[in-house]
Amino acid sequence: MTQSDSATNPANLYTAQATAVGGRAGHVHSSDDRLDLDLSVPAETGGDGGSGTNPEQLFAAGYAACFQSALGVVGRRMKLDTSLSEVTAQVGLQKDGLAFKLDVELQVKIPGVDKTAAEEAVNAAHQVCPYSVATRGNVDVRLSVLDS
């Protein structure tokens, strides 16, 4: 699918576009100029560990933000105050034969909400979050509800 096909798909509420040059040690830039970042390969994966970000950090940031928003939607439906919630996404890169794969843990804190209700909200958010839907069956995603 080309960008023009995606951008004109009437089902899309929003279409993001970013271009990478130079791979993991290159640069990423969004079409609206809001994202403009250098990339560096982490030392743990054989890179120089430079000052740039990496795809796993970008994925972790996107997943954490998206999941926290989904938690807000679910919280409103459940009449729970999730406004002070925090979601930390840990995204691991693993070798899988000749390929690589991702491993994700979402750590969630919901201050003022008892653990049982928090677990129910987190499980419900996992059903509606677009990142969770996209990774389901493809990426090992673990959910952890932490004490606030």
Rank of each mutant, 00 (worst) to 15 (best):
T53H: 00
E44G: 13
Y63S: 12
P55M: 05
A60N: 09
G49S: 05
G62K: 02
G52R: 08
Y63F: 15
L58C: 14
N54W: 08
T45L: 15
S51Y: 05
L39H: 04
P55F: 02
D36T: 07
A61Y: 05
L58Q: 14
N54T: 10
G46A: 04
D48T: 14
G47P: 09
A61E: 11
E44C: 08
D48W: 00
Q57M: 13
P42V: 01
D48Y: 00
V41E: 09
S51R: 11
A43I: 08
P55L: 06
S40N: 02
G46D: 04
L37Y: 07
R34F: 00
P55E: 05
G49T: 06
A43F: 02
A64S: 15
S40T: 06
G47R: 06
G62C: 07
N54G: 12
D33G: 09
R34W: 00
V41M: 13
L37I: 02
E44Q: 14
L39S: 06
A64V: 13
S40L: 02
F59M: 04
D38F: 09
D36C: 06
A64C: 13
A64H: 12
E44K: 12
L35K: 05
L58I: 15
D38E: 15
A60P: 09
P42Y: 00
F59Q: 03
G62H: 03
T45D: 06
Q57E: 15
D38V: 10
L35R: 04
G47H: 07
G50T: 07
L35T: 10
V41S: 04
L39K: 04
G62D: 03
P55A: 05
S51D: 14
G49C: 06
L58W: 12
G49L: 03
D33S: 13
R34A: 03
R34L: 08
A60F: 06
G49Y: 01
F59P: 07
T45F: 13
E56D: 11
F59R: 04
A64P: 13
T45G: 09
A60W: 04
D38C: 10
S51H: 11
A64Q: 10
D33T: 10
G49Q: 05
G50M: 05
A60G: 11
L58G: 14
G52V: 12
G47F: 05
S40D: 04
G46R: 02
G62R: 01
A61M: 15
Y63T: 12
E56N: 09
D36M: 08
L39Q: 03
T45H: 10
G62F: 03
S40C: 04
V41N: 04
G47K: 04
F59L: 13
F59Y: 13
E56T: 05
Y63W: 15
F59S: 05
L39E: 05
E44A: 15
L58K: 12
A43R: 12
N54Y: 09
L58V: 13
L58H: 14
G50S: 08
G52A: 11
Q57A: 13
L58E: 15
P55C: 04
G50P: 08
S51A: 15
L58M: 15
R34T: 01
L37C: 01
A43N: 03
G46S: 03
Q57G: 12
S51F: 08
G52D: 10
G50Q: 05
D38Q: 15
L37G: 00
S40R: 01
A61G: 15
G47V: 09
G47W: 01
L37R: 03
Y63K: 11
